[in-house]
Simulated scan of single mutants.
Amino acid sequence: MSDFAPSGLLKNPHAQSILASTGLRKLRSYPRARAMLAASKTVILDCGNGHQLLGEYAAQPKRSKGLVTLIHGWEGSSQSTYMLSSGGALYQAGYDIFRLNLRDHGPSHHLNRELFNSARLDEVVGAIAAIHEIYPQPWQFLAGFSLGGNFALRVAAKATEADLDIKQTVAICPVVDPAKTMTALEQGWWVYEQYFVRKWQQSLRKKINLYPELGYQKSLFKLKTLRDMNSYFIPHHTPFSNVEDYFRAYSIAEEALSTLSSPAHIIAAQDDPIILAEDFARLANSEHLSIETKRYGGHCGFMKNYQLDSWLDGRLLELINLRRYPSGDPAKLHTLASD
């Protein structure tokens, strides 16, 4: 597949990061996603220990090449633009698609009383296990974006322990070191932090309306920054007494991925304003892990032209096809990835 080589304004990381999620791009994505959306049905998954997660499953009308489970980023959902774009491309290419919502994302706030936090890995592992059981396929794939990429890699690292047969995991701009990501949000362009503050507050308001006994109504109005919000919610609404322990709990740096037992591939950008490219050097050495770093792309951007077509959609499909058809000829795989 051709390399990612944007021109002009598209070399700007902020342009990439923002354009990837604009309403205009969502409109551009709908034609490709239309068949997937028409086939999608809402599913509530039993993840064990009384926890439930919500998702949307789209099956092929005829024979399927396999099932790809997609996980969105923080404060995204199964309806996020990148989920529709990539899911639509994979569905068009013949794969079943499951778009998973993390706890308290999308229309799922009512399913669990306790708040979402990024250390809740067991319920995501339980969700993947439930998906594999309900929709059995010999070829099961997993992909995630940003925080969803972090979750996908942690699930893959527990695959043997959880008896999951994942043929390929792909993580796009995954969070590596949450503490450094939070610093990048605080010290970088103010637009990013305010975006997440606004989205998180909206989510927390939905939750407190459903579960007023959680008791943070008055405190929420006083919290204006991510640091303020973390400092309040982590000791009060997670098992962790401080921010540092919480961030360490879902970091994938150092040896966290040393237990990978199947191929995992990371796609990242050197100019990502949120996930520092230098952090990928801190990942565990594993024969199963490969890292692809592009010079440009921003955070989960990778728009290849001003029509807002995604290079990432084709690359994700190519990676899955390469695993699905390891002996296939390169020309056919390139054609499949370009459909």
Rank of each mutant, 00 (worst) to 15 (best):
A89S: 14
P61E: 08
L70P: 04
T160C: 05
P136D: 00
K158E: 11
G106R: 06
A59V: 04
K167R: 15
R113L: 12
I134R: 15
K158H: 15
I71W: 07
D122V: 00
Q92V: 11
W139N: 15
F151R: 05
L121K: 08
K167P: 00
G94D: 07
T169Y: 03
V124W: 12
K158D: 08
Y95G: 07
V124R: 05
V155I: 10
W139H: 13
A156L: 01
R154N: 06
L102Y: 05
H109W: 09
M83T: 06
Y135R: 04
R103D: 07
T160E: 15
S85T: 12
H105C: 09
Y135N: 03
K62N: 10
L70W: 04
D96P: 00
C173Q: 04
L142I: 03
G126E: 06
K158Y: 11
K158Q: 15
R154G: 03
A127F: 02
H109P: 00
A93N: 11
S146C: 09
P61S: 07
D104F: 05
C173G: 13
E75D: 14
G73A: 05
I71F: 07
N150C: 10
E133N: 08
Y135M: 03
K167S: 12
Y91N: 02
L121I: 13
Y135H: 04
G106F: 06
G87R: 08
A159Q: 15
Y91I: 00
P107Y: 06
G144E: 11
N101G: 01
L121S: 03
V124I: 14
E133I: 00
S77R: 01
F98S: 00
M83W: 01
C173M: 06
A171L: 12
T81W: 11
P174H: 04
E123V: 14
D96F: 07
P174S: 10
A119R: 04
L67Y: 00
E114P: 02
R120E: 14
Q168K: 13
A93R: 12
D163N: 14
G76W: 06
W74C: 05
Y135Q: 06
Q60H: 09
R154A: 04
W74V: 08
E161L: 12
L115G: 01
S86F: 00
G66E: 04
G149Q: 12
Y91C: 02
G88K: 01
S118Q: 09
T69C: 08
S118G: 09
L147P: 03
P138E: 14
L153F: 10
G149S: 07
Q79M: 10
F141S: 04
A157W: 05
F98K: 00
